[in-house]
Simulated assay, not measured.
Amino acid sequence: MHIHGLIEDSTALANLCARFATKPYICVDTEFMRENSYWPELCLIQIADDEEAAAVDPMGGIDMTPLLELMTNNEEVLKVFHAGGQDIEIVYNLTGKTPHPLFDTQVAAMALGQGEQIGYSNLVDTYLGITVDKGARFTDWSRRPLDKRQIDYAICDVTYLSEIFPKMLEKLRKTGRGAWLDQEMERLADPENYHNDPDEAWQRVRVSSRKPEVLGRLKALARWREIEAQGKDLPRGRIIKDETLADLAGTPPRKQGDLAKVRGLSPAWGGNDIGGRLMAALESAKPMSSDELPARDDRKPALGKDGALVADLLKLLLKIRAKEINVAARLLARSDDLEALAAGVRKDLSILEGWRFEQFGRDALELVEGQLGFTVRNGKLKMTRTEEPS
Rank of each mutant, 00 (worst) to 15 (best):
301 P>H: 13
205 V>I: 15
274 I>E: 15
308 A>P: 02
210 R>M: 06
270 G>L: 04
178 G>S: 13
259 L>Y: 04
231 G>N: 12
268 A>I: 07
234 L>C: 13
191 P>N: 07
181 L>M: 08
229 A>N: 11
283 E>T: 05
211 K>G: 13
300 K>T: 05
182 D>T: 12
276 G>H: 05
228 E>P: 00
283 E>F: 02
296 R>V: 03
299 R>V: 00
184 E>S: 10
268 A>T: 14
274 I>Y: 13
214 V>M: 04
185 M>G: 09
238 R>C: 03
287 P>G: 13
210 R>Q: 12
174 K>R: 11
219 K>T: 03
210 R>N: 14
246 A>T: 03
232 K>S: 10
226 E>H: 06
210 R>F: 09
275 G>S: 06
189 A>S: 12
225 R>D: 04
272 N>Q: 05
233 D>H: 05
296 R>M: 11
226 E>F: 04
309 L>Y: 15
208 S>L: 07
303 L>C: 13
308 A>H: 08
271 G>H: 14
297 D>Q: 12
202 W>K: 07
223 R>A: 09
306 D>A: 09
209 S>H: 11
184 E>D: 15
283 E>H: 12
238 R>W: 10
201 A>G: 08
257 G>Q: 09
234 L>N: 11
240 I>K: 05
290 S>Q: 14
172 L>M: 04
202 W>G: 10
247 D>P: 00
208 S>N: 13
175 T>V: 03
178 G>Y: 11
275 G>N: 06
270 G>F: 08
237 G>F: 06
274 I>G: 11
297 D>T: 10
286 K>G: 10
251 T>E: 14
